[in-house]
């Protein structure tokens, strides 16, 4: 594969992640697959790249004190458990010859879900901005989740909730991180706001903080168990992404929030649509071959 194509792809996704303020893993992995990188290698390598992009992202949040370390550690405990299980599942599916389709189906499910939610949200926001005076709903309500045992106090997030909640969120995102090669911020962030009820200011920093360790765990386990991490590819993608993100942030500041989210939603749905097409269309050859170790 051409070096410039890879750096260019990194740059394009970096630009988008800068404009929209998102991690970009959920776009990078499918795009790598579209370019012909084997799906397992795309996933393993992307986890490695996210370690780097999360490190550079979290530093700014640390400086501003926007990281709830206690909450981060509980999420992380779940994340490490989930991602370890996830990599084992990944290796099993690979042996069964089903990993490619599982990766694609996972992306279809989550990109479809997140894309539609974002699109609806941004349409609603645009409508609301045209009709001033509309009221905002309650952030979160008390339900059975708050009756769970092992309650813990999280000072920074001003919360007193069961540790099982963040642990569970971390574990689910950890599994996805291993199978999809994403940081999982796009699931983690909404879950932290709506499910845990954390204040928005500390959400992104705390999420990045734990993503570093979860993706590091995935990188290590994938290297050992499936040999799907390509350092060279990760480095070239990062190189492009870092530069792209710098321009992206500046462009993002010039554009309007709702329209921006609507655009990102459309993009996410397009990637999702292409993946649907991939798994539904009749393959040219029903048979495929693969070298085994």
């Amino acid at each position: 594969m051409n070096v410039f194509t890879i750096v260019g792809l990194g740059g394009a996704v970096g630009l988008l992640s800068g404009i929209f303020g998102v991690g970009g893993g959920f776009l990078m992995t499918p795009l790598l697959i579209f370019l012909g990188v084997p799906a397992p290698v795309a996933v393993g390598t992307e986890a490695n790249q996210i370690v780097a992009s999360s490190v550079s992202g979290v530093l700014a949040h640390f400086r501003r004190g926007n990281v709830d370390i206690k909450m981060g550690l509980v999420l992380l405990a779940g994340g490490l458990t989930g991602s370890t299980l996830g990599v084992a599942l990944f290796a099993l599916l690979r042996d069964l010859g089903q990993i490619d389709v599982v990766i694609k189906l996972s992306f279809i499910l989550f990109l479809g879900l997140i894309g539609s939610l974002m699109l609806m949200e941004s349409i609603r926001a645009i409508m609301r901005s045209r009709q001033p005076g509309a009221r905002r709903g309650k952030l979160h309500q008390h339900n059975w989740l708050h009756g769970l045992p092992l309650k813990m106090r999280f000072r920074k997030s001003k919360l007193y909730i069961s540790a099982l909640l963040p642990f569970g969120v971390g574990a689910i995102v950890g599994v996805l991180s291993a199978i999809m090669g994403v940081g999982g911020g796009f699931i983690m962030v909404p879950a932290m706001i709506y499910l845990l009820g954390m204040p928005t200011a500390v959400v992104v920093g705390t999420s990045l903080f734990q993503i570093i360790f979860v993706t590091a765990n995935v990188t290590f386990l994938q290297s050992v168990q499936t040999q799907t991490v390509d350092i060279m590819l990760a480095f070239l993608l990062l190189l492009g992404a870092v530069i792209g993100a710098q321009f992206g942030t500046r462009i993002g500041a010039l554009l309007k929030g709702e329209q921006l989210r609507g655009l990102l939603a459309l993009l996410v749905l397009m990637v999702c649509g292409k993946l649907v097409f991939d798994v539904v269309i009749t393959p040219e050859d029903l048979f495929s071959v693969e070298f085994l170790r």
Binding site: N48, A52, S54, I212, A216, F220, I231
Partner: peptide, 16 residues
Amino acid sequence: GIFAIIFAVASGWLAA
């Protein structure tokens, strides 16, 4: 695996 992580952390830090 360990090298990949160290490498990523270092490049991320450097980029920032």
